[in-house]
Design a protein around this nucleic acid. Structure first.
Lengths: 113, 113
DNA sequence: TTATAATATAAGCATTTACTTATATAGGGG
DNA sequence: CCCCTATATAAGTAAATGCTTATATTATAA
């Protein structure tokens, strides 16, 4: 049995506001599928590095993602222990798979390390 | 079996952006529970009538709510045929019940008609 | 230590947003 | 028809937002 912890409207809306931005929702989708470093996300989303970093900062501050440094690279993955992770999963599962884009990245040897 | 129709990241993020605002998320919560007119929402949320109307306009444009006029009053209810209604329900179910607030409104005879 | 690569942060800016106040519209009752 | 009530819309504004460019930080490698 799953304990349903209720959140406040403010807490939930602040999470939804973060997901309610195309780039950030994409980032969430990617780091839900697998751990990725900043430069990989820059490639995948075709956006500038500062833009991606700033989005990641917001997601990290909201504890929606976790970071781990490995040498020069900082890897991000989804935080599956977030208070409303259950909802976040439902949201991300509505989106079509991005597996092909990740494979394309591998094929082009653009993966870091 | 439920057919899982995938939406684009843009479509989904635009819905989440609308829900990612405290007042609008509250409105959705209320019209999910029952049909309400504008002046009732004004009471419940303690906000100005134009502010509520403008939020309702956005929700209506996104087909998240449906409206029906009855005399002077315009009633709004959730659109349970929205493309991602399944997700919207999951989101709203995370929030604590607002039943008590609706009862309080009734008790004070603030319900229209 | 110096150079280089990956990432983060700061500052600036154009756009969007959520309200306000004022006014328009629409329907019901006299 | 006129008046009143409920709602919608318009215009204005302060604050928030998502980018850009420039620079700082951090770790690795020479």
């Amino acid at each position: 049995m799953t304990i349903q912890t209720k959140v406040t409207t403010e807490e939930l809306s602040s999470v939804l506001k973060l997901l309610g931005e195309k780039t950030r929702l994409s980032i969430m989708q990617y780091v839900y599928e697998r751990e990725l470093c900043v430069c990989e996300l820059v490639e995948l989303l075709s956006m500038s590095q500062p833009a991606i970093s700033q989005h990641l900062r917001k997601l990290k501050d909201a504890k929606l993602v976790q970071e781990k440094r490995r040498g020069n690279w900082v890897y991000y993955k989804i935080n599956d222990e977030h208070q409303v992770y259950y909802v976040i999963e439902k949201i991300l599962n509505e989106l079509p798979s991005i597996e092909d884009k990740l494979q394309e990245l591998e094929r082009q040897n653009l993966l870091c390390k």
